[in-house]
Design a binder for these strands. Structure first.
Lengths: 261, 261
DNA sequence: GCTTCAATGCGTACGACGTACCCGGTTCAG
DNA sequence: CTGAACCGGGTACGTCGTACGCATTGAAGC
């Protein structure tokens, strides 16, 4: 099927599983597995062997059960992916217990978005399959909703409308996910092919040199030698600053509009 | 194999095909196919049926030949993807023939990046499989190199170094690709599942309402009703402005550093 | 305590995929 | 004219998600 999409299965079934709404039937033998264990096994397989290697057979083998046994707990692979996504969103470990300290801080929106960006980035390194799953149609599980709630709250002092605040989050999240996806793809390309990044570019070098000498690409030929020696982390840091600087323009615009009211 | 990566095959083989370096053997029957026709057929299949439906069998069927015949022309699916990527980059249709008009324009960097962004966006709509291919390890074909050369040249007047200019391009391209990927995923999710975006959210509504009433997510519960009624095109426009505004900070910084030299 | 019957476990099978291998037919160099 | 090189493509293998069906289990109803 090559799923790799969130919300690709039976939505209401996924939601029931996410929020734990289901009564155990009284008849029949007791189940030998739990949803929790299956989801954890799936995450373990994906962490260790990559998203491409995540299969129902592999997950079952990891648990020491037959493949089809999983289908007693989960409608299919698509729904299992939804559960994995909310699972790694984890119990939000925020500790705002110290009496709402950040509320008055005027620049806190920037810190809030930067923390989110770095959190997503870190999670993508911990679970390299995460940015490879296309999160259209995100299932709203408990962990993700809690994170969203807290983040939107911290954007409140900007005075922006609900739509703008959600758009800001979309832009930051979209950017971070994109760079993270490139990053883990590069790592996995190295494992999959056994060819390092350096070796890959070295393989292109003969053709490149010939083309540079042809005079067809004068600007490329004139580029400094170390032009392409940046890491994905460099792109992340550079781009995060750019995006936040751009969002600052939006926030300041709203601030000016309010004071002139 | 579930390829969906650029540069996943034999790199030097792909390059030879891209740049047309290969002598036709003199012996044996004349080939009934050409690389060109195969690549065009593959693009046609992917355009019409999506990346997931792109298979060697389907491409061969579209050409009316046996599946294995394709392997006389292309080492494998991975290399075929590389050829498709450069093919749709197309002959660059820039017309800077009118005597280098933009060179003096100080804000031209912004127009250049915006044109690129809109070009990528348009291409993603024409070829919905394009943003779904992970472009780690991009193969440098003639069309892509010509586009890069022209773009970097237009960023020259910013006075930024080579690295910064390439980073700027990476950030814009990364952002546009990310939004475009979401956009086409949403479109295809609708086709695949037969469930529209509205129906999807309606399916989540009962659970959402219950959670809103629970008081666990006060900020989400207080959001205005039309908060999530934006399109991907809205995100693209909003985010493009944000990114370009952020890059303006970088460009201005370079300008100030130069004048204070 | 015995019967009933839903629920659990999981083996088998199907149709998709990329492609390795091999064979028969075709065409040109010598 | 002959042999080598090249073309087309059929078959087969191992992968995937999962539909289907069947034996086993164990609590509910009597």
């Amino acid at each position: 099927m090559t799923t790799d999409y969130s919300g690709g299965g039976d939505v209401s079934k996924s939601l029931e599983l996410l929020w734990g709404m289901q009564q155990r039937p009284t008849r029949g033998p007791k189940p030998g597995l739990t949803l929790e264990r299956i989801v954890e096994a799936a995450v373990a397989v994906a962490d260790a062997e990559g998203l491409a290697a995540l299969s129902m057979r592999r997950v079952a083998a990891h648990l020491g059960v037959g493949t089809m046994s999983l289908y007693r707990y989960v409608p299919g692979k698509a729904e299992l992916l939804d559960l994995m996504l909310d699972h790694v969103a984890g119990p939000v470990t925020e500790e705002p217990a110290a009496g709402e300290p950040a509320r008055a801080e005027p620049g806190d929106w920037r810190a809030a978005l930067e923390e989110m960006a770095r959190g997503v980035w870190r999670m993508c390194l911990d679970h390299p399959w995460y940015p490879l799953v296309d999160q259209v149609r995100p299932l709203l599980g408990p962990n993700n909703m809690a994170g969203m709630d807290a983040l939107i709250r911290r954007l409140q002092p900007t005075g922006l409308g609900d739509r703008e605040r959600v758009l800001m989050i979309s832009v930051v999240d979209g950017f971070v996910s994109a760079v993270a996806r490139s990053q883990v793809n590069a790592m996995q390309a190295e494992q999959r092919t056994g060819i390092t990044e350096e070796e890959f570019w070295a393989a292109q070098e003969p053709v490149l040199i010939k083309m540079m000498e042809s005079g067809r690409f004068p600007t490329l030929a004139a580029l400094h030698e170390n032009t392409f020696t940046f890491t994905y982390e460099d792109v992340f840091e550079f781009g995060l600053k750019v995006v936040l600087d751009g969002l600052a323009v939006v926030v300041e615009g709203a601030g000016r509009a309010r004071t002139s009211d």
